[in-house]
Design a protein around this nucleic acid. Structure first.
Lengths: 111, 111
DNA sequence: CAATGATATCATAATATCATGTTATCTCCT
DNA sequence: AGGAGATAACATGATATTATGATATCATTG
C-alpha cells in the first residue's frame, strides 16, 4: 500500500465525503423514507413527513442536484423517487447496522 | 403503506441520519481510507493523511464512540481498524457511485 | 385571463460542526 | 523515578449547515 494520499485519492475522498452529506440530515432521511416504496409528489412527501413545503423543497433541491433522487413532471405534479438501487442499498445497510443500537449512539457527532 | 411516520420510524430515522454524519466529513473519510487495507496506529494514520495528531485523535474519538472503528491497544501503540464489513460495503458502494461524477457534484450541500 | 393549487427560490437568523493550539495522560525505557 | 514518544481531551474561534417565513413561478381549471 502507498505511504500517503495522492491527488487522485484526495479528489475521490472529497467526493465521497460530500456524497454522504446528502444522507447526514434527519429531514433528508425522512424524505428517503417517504420514497422507499416508490415515487411521491412533493405534497405527498410534505404530508407524509409533516414538514413545511419550503423545507421539503429546499432539501429536494440538493438531493436532485446530487443525483440522489429522480424527478418526473406530470402536469402540475412533480414526482420524486430514489435515484437507484445502490442508494437504497446504502440506506438499507445503514438501517441494518443501527438496528440494535441505543438511542444515544452517534451523539458524539460533534464530531 | 402507512400515511405518516410513527414514533418508531422517527427514532430509526434519527439514528440513520446521525450514523451518516460519521461519513460526511473529509477528514474522517481520509481516516477510513487509511484503514481500508487493515489496521493502523494513530501515528501511521497521521503520517498517511498528513493531518495533525490532534485532529486525527478528535475524529477517531467520534468514530470509536459510534462503533465505526475498532480499537486495540498494544503497549503504547493503539491500533484502529474499520469496524465491520458492512461499513466497508457502504464506503465501497459510495466509491462506485461517485466514480464517474464531476468534481462539482454534491457542492449543493448547503443543503 | 384571473384564481388556485403545486412547487421552487431566496434572505436571514439560529445552530451545529470543524480546525487549531494547548495541555493532560499513559506507557515504555533507562 | 524521570524523560520521551504516543495518544487523548478540552476550549475557542471560524465556518458551514439548517429552519423559517416571505415571495415568486408555473400549470390547471373555471
Amino acid at each position: 500500500m502507498q505511504a500517503t494520499l495522492n491527488n487522485e485519492d484526495i479528489m475521490r475522498i472529497k467526493l465521497v465525503s460530500k456524497f454522504f452529506k446528502g444522507f447526514a440530515d434527519y429531514s433528508r432521511i425522512c424524505i428517503f423514507e417517504s420514497l422507499m416504496e416508490g415515487e411521491k409528489t412533493v405534497t405527498e412527501i410534505v404530508d407524509f413527513t409533516g414538514f413545511s413545503q419550503s423545507k421539503i423543497s429546499n432539501h429536494l433541491k440538493c438531493l436532485r442536484e446530487s443525483d440522489l433522487v429522480n424527478v418526473r413532471q406530470d402536469g402540475k405534479y412533480i414526482y420524486y423517487s430514489i435515484y437507484d438501487e445502490r442508494i437504497k442499498l446504502i440506506l438499507n445497510t445503514a438501517r441494518e447496522i443501527i438496528e440494535n443500537v441505543s438511542e444515544e449512539k452517534y451523539n458524539c457527532m460533534k464530531y
